[in-house]
Nucleic acid binder design. Structure first.
Length: 259
DNA sequence: ATGACGTTGCCTCAACGA
C-alpha cells in the first residue's frame, strides 16, 4: 500500500491539484496539513467521489489537519494527550486514525516563528507532549507512523544552505533535541529518495525563485515504529507536485509499504 | 522548463508561513 503526507497550504485553494494528484499517485492513505478551513468547509463530497473517506480537524483560517483513506478510517482521535494550548486555543494540529493495516497520525507542528517568540516554547512543548503521546503507538504491534510537517530540519544536510538560511527556528539544537526525543520514543525517520538533486527537500519558499534554485528544506517527515518501518519498500518526495501554477510550497512525501 | 509569494478574512490591508 501507499501512504503519503502533504502540507497542501489550503485545502480549498489546492482541491483541484489534490484531486489530480490522488488520481495519478494513487495513494491509499494521505495525511494533509494546513487545511486552512473549518470541518464544515472540507469538500468531503469531492474527496469521496475520488474514492476516499475523510477525517478532519479544522477550525478556520489557520492550521487544520486531515486523513484521507481508501481503506477505511477507524478509531479517529483529534489532538494528542497533553497537547499544549496557545493562549486559550487548542489548535487543530494532530489527528490520528487506523486505516486498514496501518495507524497514521497527521501532524502540523507549530512553526515557532522566532526563538524569542512565545510560539517557540510552544513548539518545544508540543514536541515534548508528542514524544510522550507517541510512546504507546510506537511500541505497539500495529504499524504506526507519525507523519507531517514537523517544521524542523533534522540535520544541516536538510537545509539548502545552513549558512544562508536565516537560521533562527527549524535548525536550533533545542528543536533537534525535541525531535530526537520523539524518535527516542521508538519512531524512526523514513528517509526518502529525491526525484532530482542530492537532497530530498520537501519545502521551497514561494519567494526568490527558491524552487528553481533548489533552495529547499526537508521538514516534512514520516516517523515510523518498527512494524511500519519493516514494511517500507520505497519512499520519495514527489517534487513534481511543487511545479507549476497553483502549487503548494510543500511537496508530498510518499511511502510505499509491503502491506 | 520549475520563474521572482500565496492564502485567508472582511478585506483594499494584516497576519501568517519557514
Amino acid at each position: 500500500m501507499r501512504v503519503a503526507t502533504w502540507n497542501i497550504n489550503s485545502l480549498k485553494a489546492r482541491l483541484d491539484r489534490l484531486l489530480a494528484w490522488l488520481e495519478t499517485a494513487e495513494p491509499d492513505v494521505v495525511c494533509l496539513q494546513e487545511l486552512k478551513c473549518a470541518d464544515a468547509d472540507v469538500p468531503i463530497e469531492a474527496i469521496s467521489a475520488a474514492g476516499y473517506d475523510t477525517a478532519s480537524w479544522g477550525l478556520g483560517r489557520w492550521n487544520g489537519v486531515a486523513i484521507l483513506s481508501k481503506v477505511g478510517i477507524a478509531d479517529v482521535r483529534r489532538g494528542i494527550s497533553g497537547q499544549p494550548a496557545f493562549g486559550d486555543e487548542t489548535e487543530p494540529r494532530a489527528i490520528t486514525a487506523t486505516c486498514g493495516p496501518v495507524r497514521v497520525q497527521s501532524l502540523y507542528i507549530p512553526n515557532g516563528r522566532d526563538v524569542a517568540d512565545p510560539h517557540f516554547p510552544y513548539k518545544l512543548a508540543f514536541l515534548k507532549a508528542l514524544a510522550a503521546d507517541a510512546a504507546a503507538d510506537a511500541a505497539g504491534d500495529l504499524p504506526f507512523a507519525a507523519m507531517g510537517d514537523f517544521n524542523i530540519c533534522p540535520t544541516d544536510d536538510d537545509v539548502w544552505d545552513v549558512d544562508e538560511w536565516p537560521g533562527t527556528t527549524h535548525v536550533t539544537k533545542d528543536e533537534r533535541d525535541a525531535l530526537a526525543a520523539v524518535q527516542a520514543a521508538g519512531l524512526a525517520d523514513v528517509f526518502p529518495r529525491p526525484l532530482k538533486h542530492a537532497h530530498p527537500f520537501t519545502f521551497w519558499d514561494y519567494r526568490n525563485l527558491d524552487f528553481p534554485k533548489n533552495r529547499g528544506l526537508r521538514i516534512d517527515l514520516a516517523l515510523a515504529n518498527p512494524a511500519f518501518k519493516a514494511a517500507v519498500t520505497d519512499a520519495y518526495v514527489d517534487r513534481n507536485e511543487r511545479k507549476g501554477k497553483g502549487a503548494s510550497d510543500h511537496a508530498p512525501l510518499v511511502v510505499d509499504l509491503d502491506l
